[in-house]
Amino acid sequence: MRHIISILIENEAGALSRVAGLFSARGYNIESLTVAPTEDPSLSRMTILTWGSDEVLEQINKQLNKLVDVVKVVDLSEAAHVERELMLIKVRATGKDREEMKRMADIFRGRIIDVTESTYVIELTGASSKLDSFIAGLDAGLILETVRTGVCGIGRGDRILKV
């Protein structure tokens, strides 16, 4: 099953490689990983999208907690949460495609943030599946470049991950 693991970790050099190294050494899957400092610059918040059996997820959780730099770990997908991913996608926008691209961006509530005579860069946020459908909805030949941040997520309501 798909899980979103949120980690509060000391903002130290090498902390990221400890987490990444743990996943590769133990053969756990990483679909995406995002990391950035929090409002407290001594802490980073990391979000990992992974999948595996219940036993594997239990081990991932325990092994992450064992890392000395890790302060807290939660599996966001265990309860109500929201998740978002940001995508920047550069598409060919010429002739009749130019209008079509604009329409698609509007339907998906994307924003065009860079324009040239022949290209658009569209910014799109949402659940990963929404970004997937956007890509699927385009003519593949028109996509020049995509870049996605990977998922980040946060618990709903009183579910707060803080030290």
Binding site: G14, R18, G21, A25, V68
Partner: peptide, 14 residues
């Protein structure tokens, strides 16, 4: 050193 030993230490520091 930190990279080479990372997978076989409890923790390491530079």
């Amino acid at each position: 050193t930190v990279g080479i030993t990372r997978p076989c230490v409890k923790h390491n520091f530079l």
